[in-house]
Design a protein around this nucleic acid. Sequence first.
DNA 1: CGATCTGTAACTATCGTAGTTACAGATCGA
DNA 2: TCGATCTGTAACTACGATAGTTACAGATCG
Lengths: 149, 149
Amino acid sequence: MPTSSRFAIAVHMLTLMARTDEECIKSEDIARSVNTNAVVIRRLMCALSEAELLVSQTGPCGGSKLARAPQAITLLDIYRAVEGGSLFALHRQKPNRHCTVGRNIESVLEEVQAQMDEAVEGVLETITLEKVLQTVDPKASRRKRKTYA
Amino acid sequence: MPTSSRFAIAVHMLTLMARTDEECIKSEDIARSVNTNAVVIRRLMCALSEAELLVSQTGPCGGSKLARAPQAITLLDIYRAVEGGSLFALHRQKPNRHCTVGRNIESVLEEVQAQMDEAVEGVLETITLEKVLQTVDPKASRRKRKTYA
DNA sequence: CGATCTGTAACTATCGTAGTTACAGATCGA
DNA sequence: TCGATCTGTAACTACGATAGTTACAGATCG
């Protein structure tokens, strides 16, 4: 599993958009809240856009907004969009094929990986962006409920 | 979460020891099966020794063996011994405190981390080293059962 | 047409992993 | 007691991933 803060930043970004739906937010503004460079934000915007979690627009009054309601976006959607691989790495060099353990250990570890991934995904798919916003900014969450109702 | 193969190698190491219990295995021999340098193995041996999963001995006829039966060692024990941190990283720079989202997002993400960790640990604690050996080398597993019986 | 955005390339700094050499210290057998 | 054989560990290197930065092309709107 990579040591990246992409997932954390992506959740942060989308939470900002969930708070001010319809209205586009500029990468500069997001960068200020996240406390990083705007290009880092735009790179993640690309990934999140490809996953159809947000839509972007160039030009003046451009920026990004959610592609769908925050109730319909789970943390699993976000995780998959920005964080590729598995939770731990297998051997770098292939183990020794002349050893029984070396020959068979990798497939066992792949099975373990699969079970771990499944467990994590089970957690992430139960948490929606709406729930995150509710915890982070309850007032904005209530305001928004009218919009989508 | 760091992109390390320590967990994979540690499971490999201990599986080798589970196969030939009582008898000590040298770091050189383990390194040959894992296909890496002996020092890498010894570094992990230290961590696994501190976690009381194996015991080492210096000198001729030295090496390492399991500290207890493979039925009594779970993958969670191994994971905790060699893989420190969490499954994803939070923000590097602290988010902007002047923004409501920036101020509150981290505690939400920490809660998510905790839930993910718990889910993964739930999986790992159900898999014993004995079960791994059984899959990797069923013959040795049957042979050993006599020893511990 | 010009201002304002995104999208993206290119470069850099930093860090974690692990591969390597080298050696101190423990231990055993002759 | 000496020498061979292990572990334990320090020190250094190589490599890859992350993300911070500058720069600019291209889209879009007034």
